Simulated assay, not measured.
Amino acid sequence: MADGTRVASVEDVPENGSVLFTAEDPFTNEREVILVRCAAEPGVEAWVNNCTHEDQRFDRGDGAPMRDGQLICPRHGSLFDACSGHCDNGEAAGTTLPSVAVTVEDGAVFLSDDGYTYLHEGGIDDDDTPSSTSHIGL
C-alpha cells in the first residue's frame, strides 16, 4: 500500500489538461497543485499551480493548457516540460516549477510529499464554504 493520501485515479488525469487539488505546505499556506500526464514513469507528475515568472495559475478550474507534453503559461506562453517542470523559453526561461511528490500504485495517485498535506479536490476557493455570511449584495 502506498504511503500518502489518495488524490485521484491515473485515468482521471487527462492526456492534455490537469487535475487540480489543494494542499497545505510546510508553512501552513494553502497551495494549489496540479497533476499532469508525463511520458516518463510513473506517468503522472505534480506541480505547484503557478508559473515561476508571475503569480499566474495554470489551471483555473477547468484544466491546465497543454501542448505536446508541455504546460503553457496562459499569461505569457512560456512552456514547461510536464515531466521535469523545466522551462527553456519565454519570460520563465531557465526556471523549474516547484514539484510535489506523488506515488502511483495500482492505478491511483497518492500525495506522498512529506512537506504537503492534502486538503481537498479543486482549487483554494472551491471548498464549498461561503465567502460571506451576509445576504446583502452591494
Rank of each mutant, 00 (worst) to 15 (best):
D3R: 13
Y118N: 02
S112T: 13
G123H: 11
V48A: 01
E45Y: 06
M66A: 06
E121F: 04
Y118F: 15
L71H: 11
V13M: 08
P74V: 12
H135L: 13
L111H: 05
Q56G: 01
D128F: 14
D113S: 02
T22H: 03
D126W: 00
V104Q: 02
A82H: 09
D81M: 09
T28A: 13
T22E: 05
F80R: 07
H135D: 12
S18G: 07
G63W: 03
P98Y: 05
I34C: 05
V48D: 12
R31Y: 00
E30T: 04
A23P: 10
E11V: 14
S132F: 01
E91C: 04
D125Q: 12
L79N: 09
R6Y: 00
C73W: 07
V33R: 11
D88Q: 13
A39H: 06
T103A: 15
A64N: 08
C87S: 12
T52Y: 02
G63R: 11
G17R: 09
G90E: 07
V36R: 10
G90C: 06
A46D: 03
D68M: 05
E32W: 06
P130R: 11
L20M: 12
E121I: 07
H53K: 08
A93Y: 03
H120W: 15
G4N: 10
L111T: 02
S9N: 14
C83Y: 07
S132W: 07
N16R: 09
I34A: 04
T52S: 14
F80D: 05
T95V: 02
V102K: 08
D59C: 07
D126E: 15
L79P: 03
T133V: 05
A23K: 10
E45G: 00
A46I: 10
D59M: 00
H86Y: 12
C87N: 11
A2I: 00
I136R: 12
A8N: 07
T117D: 03
T117F: 00
P26A: 11
A40N: 13
V44G: 04
V109K: 10
L97Y: 06
R60P: 00
G69R: 11
N50V: 10
R37C: 08
S134D: 14
E41F: 04
T22N: 05
L35H: 07
A8E: 12
L111W: 00
V7I: 15
Y118P: 01
D3T: 12
T103S: 15
A2E: 11
A101W: 01
R6P: 02
S134I: 01
A101K: 14
P74W: 05
A101I: 05
N49D: 14
A39Y: 01
D126H: 13
E105H: 13
L97T: 04
G137T: 10
G115V: 00
R37G: 10
S84C: 08
